[in-house]
């Protein structure tokens, strides 16, 4: 079971945004600080926090909160 609060907290910390502002529509398109460098930091932080490994071929595509949530939930479930 994915701890969504923890996920939002990680994202908020890396992107330096209010975690209450994160919802299904949050993405690289509407968060100014979410650039390609921060994106690498974000994936690394998520992997560390949840103890999972995001496949290389998917890492670059996880550019929205909804997609991150879906993928991380699967990874956590499979642990």
């Amino acid at each position: 079971m994915l701890d969504e609060t923890k996920l939002k907290s990680v994202i908020a910390a890396i992107l330096d945004i209010d975690e209450n502002s994160i919802d299904q529509n949050t993405s690289m398109d509407n968060v100014e600080s979410w650039d390609s460098i921060k994106h690498m930091d974000l994936i690394l932080a998520i992997e560390e926090e949840f103890g999972v490994s995001v496949p290389d071929e998917e890492a670059a595509d996880l550019t929205s909160y909804a997609l991150i949530k879906l993928v991380v939930a699967d990874l956590v479930k499979d642990k």
């Binding site: 993405s27 398109d29 998917e58 595509d61 996880l62 550019t63 929205s64 909804a66 997609l67 879906l70 993928v71 699967d74």
Partner: peptide, 15 residues
Amino acid sequence: PEKVQMMVARQTPLR
């Protein structure tokens, strides 16, 4: 898979 559908949507300029 929904994940793939969402990724395709994210890769699409019109999202």
